[in-house]
Simulated assay, not measured.
Amino acid sequence: MALFDLPLDEMRGYRSRSVEPADFDRFWAETLAETREHDLDARFEPVRTGLSTLDVFDVTFAGFGGHPVKGWLILPAGATEPLPVVVEYVGYGGGRGLPHTHLLWGSAGFAHFVMDTRGQGAGWGGGGTPDPVGSGSSFPGFMTRGIEDPADYYYRRVFADAVRAVEAARAHPLTDASRTAVTGVSQGGGITIAVSGLVPDLVAVAPDVPFLCDFPRATTITDNRPYREVGDYLRTYRGRTEAVSRTLGYFDGVHFAARGRAPALFSVALEDETCPPSTVFAAFNAYAGPGSSIEVYDFNDHEGGGPYQQAAQLAWLPERLTA
């Protein structure tokens, strides 16, 4: 795929036209208050994995609606003192997978918490968290579930789960709550940005080729799923564009980014047709945290920097987690 989006110089100054709802902060404060009415009930069950250098716990905690959400907590073997913790969110369609697929941050000496995404996991990885909430008509996938009402929208539950995942990770005695970072790729990157705006005391944020950003542009510039799911829904349900746009305004990474407080390391790929680079820059350019930067991968599609971006994170994140 050749370069298809705005020139890089223009993207560095690009601003989204996404409209922030007037009650954005109230909506999310009420969502999290409602979620926290349920006891976190974080449970950590040790599991045998055959990994001699890492200890693994099967985690269950109460997410949105008190619904049980799964995760992994992975620690350097034999850890006895609280460690900085990296909370990770996974990509679209995937689940938490198996513990041996998550070796990076535990091997680097940190606690690593991987959140399962409710209702997902059949696409790859495998998940163990159902989404017990129904919705009206939707296009196959997750993007349009409950999309005509922000209170019913699928990502309201997911973002609330993600905040609770930070709280669950911090509840373990071998994690240092004061040194918490969040990260993820694609959908995981979009969730990361949302959490950056909802959890005020993170020390670092690392979204890679993030999804769920700059909906007005993303849903009209690419034919790739998942964004295309919105267009396919509106192709059938004509006349509902205004209601859908209003809902998406509550979930746009651009608005969460404007509330970010921790330093961030973004990544973007200039041939990315799944999460177009201008939409990633829209979130990065809105990000309010200090000392933030973005890695640009000129001739890459949605794979982004892959292991090169992991190397960049390994050089960047420990300095912030160990400060």
Rank of each mutant, 00 (worst) to 15 (best):
F4T: 08
D5P: 11
P7E: 01
D9L: 13
D9W: 07
M11Q: 11
R12N: 01
G13W: 04
G13P: 01
Y14Q: 02
R15Q: 15
S16R: 07
R17G: 02
E20V: 14
F24I: 05
R26H: 12
T35L: 01
D41S: 10
R43T: 10
F44C: 05
T53V: 03
L54D: 00
F57R: 11
G65V: 02
P68F: 07
I74N: 03
P82M: 09
P82H: 12
V85G: 06
V87N: 02
Y89V: 02
Y92M: 03
R96K: 15
G97Y: 12
P99G: 08
H100T: 07
H102I: 05
A108I: 04
G109E: 08
F110T: 12
A111G: 15
H112I: 11
M115V: 11
Q120W: 10
G125T: 00
G126P: 03
T129A: 03
F139Y: 15
R145T: 11
G146R: 12
V158E: 09
D161M: 06
V163L: 01
R164N: 03
A169I: 08
L174A: 05
D176M: 01
V185F: 11
S186M: 02
G189M: 00
S196A: 14
D208Q: 14
V209F: 06
P216E: 09
R217D: 13
D223V: 14
N224S: 15
R225V: 13
V230P: 05
V230E: 06
R235Y: 13
R238G: 06
G239E: 04
R240Y: 06
L248A: 11
G249V: 14
F251H: 14
A258V: 12
A269L: 12
T274R: 11
C275A: 13
C275H: 09
P277D: 10
P277V: 15
A282T: 15
A286H: 14
A286R: 13
A288I: 09
Y297N: 10
F299W: 14
F299Q: 14
N300T: 10
H302V: 08
H302Q: 08
G305V: 07
Q310Y: 15
Q313H: 10
W316L: 08
L317S: 07
L317P: 04
E319Q: 08
E319G: 08
A323M: 04
